[in-house]
Amino acid sequence: MSDEPGFLMMPGAPTPVAPFSHAVRVGPWLFVTGQMPTDPHDDAAPLPDGIEAQTRRVVENLKLVLAGAGYELRHAVQARVYLVEFKRDYAAMNATYQSFFPADRRPARTCVGVTGLARAALVEIDLIAYQD
């Protein structure tokens, strides 16, 4: 792998809602742009209802981006979670989020409350992954 950044757009991943790459690879590191709970097959589809369904869709979208670069969730070393309704949704988001990671392989994580997200989403998650 080169140490020159590779700016990646993944076929089959959701269309970005702003001007950015799905991910940037630098050596063994992959920096994955925050994913929204959008349908990767239909940009105009309504977002799923509720924090659990939105969290599942976000993680599935992250998996699409990771797979496009040859990575998997097991390569995630850091996650950042953004919640619009932090107090209301934190516990339910956690329950859904943790179902994707084995207890002995959870990435380091930050979770913050925000005042709003694109498309009025309830959750957005970005990742940093590492694969040697």
Score class of each variant (00 low, 15 high):
42 D>Y: 11
5 P>N: 10
30 L>M: 06
11 P>L: 09
3 D>W: 14
100 F>A: 08
96 T>V: 12
16 P>F: 11
121 A>K: 00
126 D>Q: 09
51 I>N: 01
29 W>I: 14
58 V>L: 09
46 P>W: 12
104 D>S: 10
70 G>K: 11
99 S>D: 14
121 A>E: 00
92 A>W: 01
125 I>Q: 01
9 M>Y: 11
25 R>Q: 14
123 V>F: 01
7 F>R: 14
107 P>N: 10
37 P>A: 14
38 T>Y: 01
112 V>G: 03
17 V>M: 14
11 P>V: 09
36 M>D: 02
30 L>Y: 04
20 F>E: 07
95 A>D: 15
54 Q>S: 06
27 G>R: 09
17 V>S: 10
72 E>T: 15
86 F>T: 00
12 G>N: 11
8 L>Y: 15
87 K>G: 08
15 T>C: 09
86 F>C: 00
41 H>N: 15
107 P>M: 10
87 K>T: 11
80 R>P: 00
96 T>R: 10
12 G>H: 06
63 K>F: 01
11 P>T: 11
44 A>F: 10
109 R>E: 08
45 A>F: 13
66 L>P: 02
25 R>E: 12
55 T>P: 01
30 L>R: 04
29 W>C: 12
90 Y>R: 15
47 L>W: 06
77 V>R: 14
55 T>H: 01
106 R>M: 14
116 G>I: 01
72 E>P: 07
18 A>T: 11
111 C>T: 01
80 R>I: 13
82 Y>S: 11
59 V>L: 15
114 V>L: 05
22 H>I: 09
5 P>L: 04
86 F>W: 07
2 S>E: 12
21 S>P: 02
70 G>D: 11
107 P>H: 08
103 A>L: 06
